[in-house]
């Protein structure tokens, strides 16, 4: 069971990134690769709040959330919107990679290349649960990510704003013609994704430490998670992330330490070949 808990905890990280990808993808049609790097920056900002400024966790979490939301908004205004107006989503995808690289470089320059420990709000004493051991921080992370994913899934299907986001993702021009403010939706999506990244940063750092390389690992597996689960489906991203984490851990434990990545990418390829829109992605009509 310890392996299962470990897989779920790592999977929660990938799900969190996938959720951030989907929030932006649904509202603006852009895969924001920088989202994983926003989480990484969030872990360092959480460190600043908790250690450098000595703030309590209750203050550090919202402050980090707001700060990362501001960074995400700046990203949208500088790196995304000018391209969306001229080139569409594909060019914007490349610039998000650039923004991510920039954020990684800034983090290395400001906080150095060594990992930094962010104080966790929970005791480091492992918890025995259902026959396995798990860190308290990791259990909270799993539960919070599950709640977030399900909540956002319901929001995107049952609220007017959520449906408007879906409509924008389906067809930006048509949504605009129907009177939707697609710019505001896009900006709001970036702010929300940044806010989520920042709010979860303390719990992410409790598992991974704050490290400038963190964004790279999360970006890759977060992308695999939405590809498996289905891009644009919050439920799909959530399940995709947890599935990768579990698959990775179980393979490393029982099949062999050389195989986890091979197995994960084999499943990724299999799903791309058999269900190109992912497990939970719906088929889309396109005029040709």
């Amino acid at each position: 069971m310890t392996t299962i808990w470990a897989g779920l905890a790592t999977g929660a990280l990938y799900s969190l990134v996938a959720i951030g990808y989907n929030v932006v993808l649904l509202a603006s049609g852009v895969v924001n690769f920088a989202n994983a790097y926003l989480i990484m920056i969030g872990t360092f900002l959480a460190y600043v709040c908790l250690v450098d400024w000595g703030l309590p966790v209750a203050a550090a979490i919202p402050l980090t959330g707001l700060a990362v939301a501001v960074i995400a908004v700046v990203e949208e205004r500088i790196a995304i919107r000018p391209l969306l107006n001229r080139q569409g989503g594909h060019a914007a995808l490349i610039t998000t990679v650039g923004v991510g690289t920039l954020l990684g470089g800034i983090a290395a320059k400001v906080w150095g290349t060594e990992p930094v420990r962010v104080p966790s709000p929970f005791s480091a004493e492992p918890l025995t649960l259902l026959g396995g051991t798990i860190q308290r921080n990791d259990l909270v992370l799993i539960l919070l990510v599950l709640a977030l994913g399900v909540g956002l899934h319901l929001w995107s299907r049952r609220t007017l704003l959520g449906l408007a986001s879906l409509a924008t993702a389906e067809n930006r021009q048509a949504a605009q013609a129907r009177g939707l403010n697609v710019r505001a939706l896009g900006l709001g999506a970036f702010a929300l994704a940044g806010l989520i990244a920042g709010l979860f940063a303390v719990f992410v750092a409790g598992r991974t430490y704050a490290h400038f390389h963190l964004g790279e690992t999360l970006a890759l597996f977060g992308f695999v998670a939405i590809a498996i689960g289905g891009s644009g489906s919050q439920l799909g991203g959530l399940i995709g992330g947890f599935a990768i984490g579990l698959l990775y851990a179980v393979t490393a434990r029982y099949v062999g330490d050389s195989y986890p990545q091979i197995v994960v990418f084999a499943v990724f390829l299999l799903i791309l070949l058999t269900r190109p829109r992912g497990l939970f992605g719906g088929a889309a009509e396109r005029q040709v």
């Binding site: 392996t3 470990a6 990280l13 991974t208 690992t217 851990a249 179980v250 434990r253 330490d257």
Partner: peptide, 12 residues
Amino acid sequence: TTALDMTPQLQQ
């Protein structure tokens, strides 16, 4: 090198 957790290997 990109692993975020070594628990499964340690259990093995």
